[in-house]
């Protein structure tokens, strides 16, 4: 497969509004709600928290990708999707409010962020929302890489999840997490290149306390090693009961 150049990154969690701030460990307490300026007023008002964090990292990643935002394929990855909104809906149904609002309903699908972003960007591309568990991050990169192998010049991977809400909480007090990778067949301006996506016997990604067991955390080491300039083989899966080889990729750094 062709080498995949990384030409843009995005990161958001409360306290950290950029990949660099996260990797330097410099929190900013004023970062509590994502800007998501890409969404116009009416779209932003209707958008869920998950959609806002996902759109926030998308707009960070495309800033340096120098791509056609109307045509770029965007791969959205989320394990739980709009779980927070779904719990609200279950509560409304339970309390006898019965009738849902159309907005609550359309905000419950996994591809909610994709829909909002496509409207905001005028993006008519074949964007896809992938979901799942330990293989989530690898699946999203597989989708993007196959687009690049086919016809696309650029693609963005957006990983975003919120902690599960009561009564299903696994990780009470954990933070939402979103990261994005602007990928390209073009090397100009790229700081890193990814080669040889494969399964191999290496250590999986350790879950961080801050994010609990969020599967999108499987993308954190890749983002951190790109920012901190640490090449090598990088795992794309969080630790799980699954035995055997895990998804990984080789990261090489480029002079920019």
């Amino acid at each position: 497969m062709k080498p995949v150049y990384v030409r843009g990154l995005g990161f958001w969690t409360p306290g950290f509004a950029s990949p660099e701030a996260w990797c330097r460990g410099e929190p900013d307490p004023s970062v509590d709600v994502p800007d998501a300026a890409l969404l116009s007023g009416p779209l932003r008002r209707r958008a869920t928290g998950l959609t806002r964090v996902a759109v926030e990292v998308l707009q960070q990643a495309i800033r340096t990708l120098d791509c056609d935002v109307a045509t770029i394929p965007i791969i959205w990855a989320t394990a739980h999707g709009e779980h927070t909104n779904a719990i609200k809906i279950l509560g409304m149904m339970r309390s006898g409010e019965g009738k849902l609002s159309p907005t609550h309903f359309h905000n419950s699908v996994h591809n909610t962020a994709s829909g909002y972003a496509s409207i905001a960007l005028g993006n008519c591309s074949p964007s896809t929302t992938v979901t799942g568990g330990v293989e989530l991050v690898a699946s999203s990169f597989l989708e993007a890489v196959c687009h690049l192998e086919a016809a696309a010049e650029d693609a963005v991977v957006v990983l975003a999840d919120e902690p599960l809400q009561p009564p299903f909480h696994y990780s009470e007090g954990a933070s939402p997490l979103a990261l994005a990778f602007g990928l390209s067949s073009r090397s100009e301006g790229a700081g890193a290149v990814l080669t040889d996506f494969r399964r191999d016997v290496i250590a999986p990604v350790k879950p961080r306390d801050r994010f609990g067991p969020l599967y999108v955390g499987g993308g954190l080491p890749l983002l951190e090693r790109i920012v901190l300039r640490r090449p090598g083989t990088v795992a794309l899966e969080v630790a799980s009961e699954r035995a055997g080889p895990i998804h990984c990729v080789d990261l090489e750094l480029l002079e920019t």
Binding site: S114, T129, T131, E135, A138
Partner: peptide, 9 residues
Amino acid sequence: GPATAISNA
């Protein structure tokens, strides 16, 4: 092989 779930409504 690769295993993916897609959820585009």
